[in-house]
Design a protein around this nucleic acid. Sequence first.
DNA 1: CTGTTAGCGCGTTCAG
DNA 2: CTGAACGCGCTAACAG
Lengths: 348, 348
Amino acid sequence: MSVTLADVAARAGVSAATVSRVLNGNYPVAGATRTRVLRAVEELEYVVNGPASALAAATSDLIGVLVNDIADPFFGIMAGAVQSEIGQATRKLAIVCNTGGSPERELTYLTLLQRQRASAVVLTGGAVEDAAHGAALATRLRRLDAAGSRVVLCGRPPLATEEDGPHPLALTFDNRGGARRLTEHLLSLGHRRLGYLSGPAARTTTRHRLEGHRAAMAAAGLAADAERLTTHGGYDRASGYDGTLELLRRDPDLTAILAANDTVALGVCAALRDRGLRIPQDVSVTGFDDLPFAVDAVPALTTVRLPLHDAGARAGRLALGREDAPPGGVATFHGDLMVRDSTAPPRP
Amino acid sequence: MSVTLADVAARAGVSAATVSRVLNGNYPVAGATRTRVLRAVEELEYVVNGPASALAAATSDLIGVLVNDIADPFFGIMAGAVQSEIGQATRKLAIVCNTGGSPERELTYLTLLQRQRASAVVLTGGAVEDAAHGAALATRLRRLDAAGSRVVLCGRPPLATEEDGPHPLALTFDNRGGARRLTEHLLSLGHRRLGYLSGPAARTTTRHRLEGHRAAMAAAGLAADAERLTTHGGYDRASGYDGTLELLRRDPDLTAILAANDTVALGVCAALRDRGLRIPQDVSVTGFDDLPFAVDAVPALTTVRLPLHDAGARAGRLALGREDAPPGGVATFHGDLMVRDSTAPPRP
DNA sequence: CTGTTAGCGCGTTCAG
DNA sequence: CTGAACGCGCTAACAG
């Protein structure tokens, strides 16, 4: 079958233990035997048996990265950053798992990762807000922690559960603040009839962004309007398109639309164009995230830039145990308001 | 430490072997003991030890998916399709590895996957065309095959090596045909001065698309122009922007630009706009791939739609051994020409 | 249908 | 600095 440690040992004329020591570099080995062993490894094209090694060492070198939608650059950028940070550390294998936003699959993957005895797990993006799922998730994460896996949340708020015990490290985005600033930006331009296209209900990201928007609206005495001109959809382009038509139905005279994210904003722009409305002369539009394509939208999208890469890289380091935990176990990343061409004062 | 099979067996009052049989469902087990075992599993929150199981069974349930750029939806869509196909099959864990387009990291990941005794490996996207790397890659794939891993290429041409032995299954895209059709479309509109922004040199995808373009140009008696008006860049937006400026320098009167892919086309559009040129009135633009954002470009991009999802799903089934290999081990997916608003006849 | 017995390939004591 | 021996947790024969 496959070549084993023993084969290498035989060929090098040493014991299996010595080969193991050379390969792991944890114990002192004489230079001569060392090179002899390495040559044997080369000649035999020996590749360590990961499972056997994981079994004996009671720890594997897999690190799981869970994403809601692997086809969405929002997650791709974070996952790529995590992985490139981990790629530096040889031997560790960062593996990306796509939950498709499904709570069940999230749980399934966590079990699968626990079963592989993953050394760490990074959960990216917003969480589903559902009591039952939250409890199930907390349980899984507790078990992972108990089994020795490091758990890091990236772009996700700390666990809501009040129970004691180890809380996973959390790197969160200031979604509330970003949405508030976006809304304030529009208000300061003179807008008063703002529509808000919210993301999927029961998601932390959705709720926080909505809260930021409402806070700014309330501060301007427009709480009632904020309520009336909010719709819920997905994080996809179609939701932006359909939502825009719905908003225009509710208020044909609105002068600005805030989209849940950049992708939704693209759908908003398409719908407005199809309706013959100009951006930003007739209606201002904002996105969220500042994904690479946002600057290429026409007109270029005013949005909030989230440090996706930085957050992912830091999550990777935390997962590796290379960096100390932030104070309190939670670090918040703030976004930058990027004012571009899709927003302007409303028509008089 | 962690709860093991033996613990479950003790609690259920059976032997470890019986527990194993219940969990794997491979052997007949009496209904009564079966439920008793399952209850014990629940109560103890038992999770199989993957490495131990892989060691004993000499096979793991990991399937690796290599991508060149995880932040690029082109790969995200394929990887997502592979993974969702595999997610159906419980227990199998599809893991996405991001090579960042680096040949070394590609090899490293393949070794890591071999070390994990992955049951299959899917390589997506174009390959680097370099003799040394090609040989190294072929070697790694041969070893993987020898170790019992299924190897599937998805969106990548069959291995160039002429050696005998097992060639991996290959699902390829008809990049040549797509590029040819795009070029013919522009020629038939009356264009004669076409610029071509090619992708990274030494990549199969790049070369095939370029060949298709040149074939169409040669057929129209424009071989020399094709040569003169071709630049090489990356698959990113900046390459499209810079490349466009370069092409305009070489021929200020060109009437059409074909981009290596949709992302590059976005950069082309931005550069043309900044130069005050209208699309398509002054210059027609085409992309490639038809990623989701292509339809939202302004104007909507004429491009070639590649069946990324279908190819990924099929690769997933092949990796699982659920589907028979295509005849000859190779299947080609053709693209659809999507004529939209970014192309029109040149000005008289 | 179920229990017993051997390893799977490696890391890690403990001696030397 | 090196070798021998043991066990990680599980699956796969082999009996019964």
